[in-house]
C-alpha cells in the first residue's frame, strides 16, 4: 500500500545476490502487529507493538519484541478489545523510544503483517510526528498471500478480505493472546509459515514471486 513496485529491491539485498534468485529460506522476515486506539491513522494512536523474527522457516522465541507505549491520546472505548489501560502493569515507553526500538529490531528484514498496510500507516504517522525516517523495507500482507493459496473455483468465491481469526481457524492456530500485539503477531507468523509452505508446494518460490503476491 505504501511501497510501490518501483521500489528498488536490490538495495535491500545488496550483497546477497539478485532478488529474483534469492531463496526464501535465506531471507529474514520480521512479523509485526500493532494494537491501536482505533482505525483512524490521523486521530488514533499506537498502544503496543509486537514482533517476531523468522529465518530459515523458524521462529526464534528469544527474538521477540513487545512494546507498550505511554499514551496522551486515549480512547476508553477500545480498552475492552485489547485490554491495554492507560496505566497498565506493563512498562511503558515513549512513542519516540518505541519507534527507535522497532527500527533497531526490524533492521533490513522484510516486514510481514496481517493487513500490514494499516499498521505501517499508523507507524508512518507516528514517525512523521517525531520527524523520524519512514520504513523503506518491503512489506508483505498475509491477507493477500492467503488469498493466493485458495482454490480458484467459481463455486467457492474468494472474499475480498480474510480476518486473522479466519486464518487462525483455517490453520488451526490457538487464539490465546489474541488482541495483544505480540499474540496477533505470533498467529500471523504461524499462518505465514504455513502459507509459505503451501505456496512452495505448487512451485519453487522465489523471493520475487513472493513479493509480487504479497504486496
Amino acid at each position: 500500500m505504501i511501497l510501490g513496485k518501483s521500489f528498488d529491491l536490490r538495495r535491500v539485498f545488496a550483497g546477497s545476490g539478485r532478488v529474483s534468485d534469492t531463496p526464501v529460506t535465506d531471507v529474514s522476515f520480521a512479523v509485526i502487529d500493532s494494537e491501536t486506539t482505533g482505525l483512524d491513522p490521523l486521530q488514533d494512536r499506537i498502544l503496543s507493538l509486537g514482533g517476531l523474527k523468522i529465518k530459515d522457516n523458524r521462529i526464534k522465541v528469544s527474538e521477540t519484541l513487545e512494546l507498550f507505549l505511554a499514551q496522551d491520546h486515549f480512547d476508553a472505548r477500545s480498552v475492552p478489545i485489547h485490554g491495554i489501560m492507560r496505566e497498565g502493569p506493563n512498562k511503558r515507553i515513549s512513542e519516540k523510544e518505541a519507534l527507535v526500538q522497532l527500527r533497531d529490531y526490524v533492521g533490513d528484514a522484510i516486514l510481514v503483517g496481517h493487513h500490514i498496510g494499516f499498521d505501517l500507516e499508523m507507524i508512518r504517522r507516528a514517525q512523521q510526528r517525531h520527524q523520524l525516517p519512514y520504513f523503506t523495507n518491503i512489506a508483505l500482507d498475509t491477507g493477500l498471500l492467503y488469498r493466493k493459496t485458495l482454490l480458484k473455483s467459481p463455486l467457492v468465491p474468494k472474499k475480498q478480505h480474510y480476518s486473522l481469526d479466519e486464518l487462525a481457524e483455517k490453520y488451526n492456530i490457538s487464539c490465546k493472546d489474541r488482541h495483544t500485539a505480540l499474540g496477533d503477531a505470533y498467529i500471523t507468523a504461524l499462518a505465514f509459515l504455513q502459507i509459505l509452505s503451501q505456496l512452495q508446494e505448487k512451485r519453487d518460490l522465489t523471493l520475487k514471486a513472493l513479493i509480487r503476491m504479497g504486496t
Binding site: R58, I59, K60, V61, L190, S197
Partner: peptide, 13 residues
C-alpha cells in the same frame, strides 16, 4: 522455553 525455535513442517517433509 525462551531458547526454543518454532518450526513448521508440511506433511511429508
Amino acid at each position: 522455553s525462551e531458547a526454543v525455535e518454532i518450526i513448521y513442517k508440511e506433511r511429508g517433509t
